[in-house]
């Protein structure tokens, strides 16, 4: 049962966070876009709130590490080079595709945006397909 309750609770907290971002700052909570805009493509007046958001996420990460370190368990049995390839794909793909799991998957779908619906179905389908492919390539040892 807790197997489903915790994801549901965590998801509700994510929904609440996205709602607060909209209510208070009038913005969509798209994390890939926030990171891109804070580091690689800064625009005047759009940088410091992004760094505040990033700091808040890191603060949350430290709190998790202290009170519930198992939140970071479950490391995949893959070689380090796969993380480099994956990181490059995720960085390139999320900016080209204008969003990731948060911006498209949570905020966009809640806004009933056709673009986000297509994006979410696409990255999920690609992920499902890629797991089959990588398993056959023995990437997950």
């Amino acid at each position: 049962m807790t197997e489903y309750i915790m994801p549901l609770l965590g998801g509700a907290l994510i929904g609440l966070a996205a709602s607060l971002m909209l209510f208070l700052n009038g913005r969509v909570t798209g994390i890939s876009g926030i990171i891109y805009g804070a580091t690689i493509a800064p625009e005047k007046g759009e940088i410091s709130w992004r760094w505040c958001f990033i700091s808040g996420m890191l603060l949350g990460g430290f709190i998790l590490k202290v009170i519930s370190p198992q939140a970071f368990a479950g490391i995949l049995p893959t070689a380090n080079w796969t993380l480099v390839v994956a990181g490059i794909l995720v960085g390139f793909g999320t900016v080209l595709g204008s969003g990731c799991t948060s911006g498209h998957g949570v905020c966009g779908i809640s806004r009933l945006s056709p673009r986000s619906l297509v994006a979410t179905l696409t990255f999920m389908a690609a992920g499902i397909f890629a797991v089959v492919l990588f398993r056959n390539l023995n990437i997950y040892q």
Binding site: M57, L89, C100
Partner: peptide, 24 residues
């Protein structure tokens, strides 16, 4: 939009990380 999302999905499956959880 579609190609970018596809590329992202492949990287997500390869690592198990998307941007938010990676940052956290």
């Amino acid at each position: 939009l579609v190609i970018g999302s596809f590329i992202f999905g492949v990287g997500w499956a390869l690592s198990g990380y998307c941007p938010g959880p990676a940052l956290t």
